[in-house]
Amino acid sequence: MIKWESKALDFINQTSRWDKEKHISSFLAFSISLVKNLLQADVALQLEFENEHSAKVKNASPNFHNGAVVNPDPVRQLLYRNAFKTIYWQEFPADNPLKDQLEDLLCAVIIPINIEPHNSLLLLGWSDPQEFDQGFQDCIETIRLRLKEILTQTQERLYFQGIAIRFAAILHSLPHAVVFINNDGYAGWVNQKAADILELAGPGEQLPAILSDAMTQLRNRAVNTEDIYNTAIQLFASPENAISDWEWKLDGESPITYRVSCLPVTSQRINGRLWIFEE
């Protein structure tokens, strides 16, 4: 196998075997570092176009480049002039907008990676002369396609993690105990308050079977178990039924009455029941 083909395959293999248990933000850093090592570059970095006014260096090696802000317009114009194709510089043009990043280097490759919402480019630089022959360029194009997948995956995961963090923070802050049980039988979720009253190890994802068992135990501790049972029969007679102000009276050292609501949750992607326990 030719040297450059082998390097491209190596990049795909190693990035495919990346340990998914690690935080997603390290995936791109790992991938860029891998490109640098495989191509024996002296500098490798991502330039992310954050908005109209800002482009920032990220995942750089050497890492002193990280955080540097580059004026985005001249770089965008450069990419535009080259029709967003990979740019191979055997020597740098006079109007090089990446001067600071390419200081003390001799040649460079600029790989545009266009994805939404933030476009990026990968900059590779060498302090020795390089042959950018057809084999090398084919290798770069393969790496570019894989990097685009990695960047897309990274941005999506970070976006969804952000949403999950936001909603978890909101739901954990509610004064009520909230339990969601998905009808698929595989997914359930509780906030901290619900985890406390159901005596679960902690909040977050739980198997519905565990939640059902915990809720049965809670119901069995009630002094009005029979009332609860009879109401439940009526409630579950139809999946559309809902109830509120349903009293669960618990005895014990500190007797407490929960006002329980049970509402169907129906959307295109999810069907289940939301339980809310108010003291």
Binding site: E50, N51, H53, K56, A68, V69, N71
Partner: peptide, 20 residues
């Protein structure tokens, strides 16, 4: 209108401005 929270999140944005 050209102020950007991202660009000026650290001093780096101001550093690039002063170089310009």
């Amino acid at each position: 209108s050209s102020y950007s929270y991202e660009r000026y999140e650290t001093l780096e944005g101001y550093v690039t401005d002063l170089m310009s």
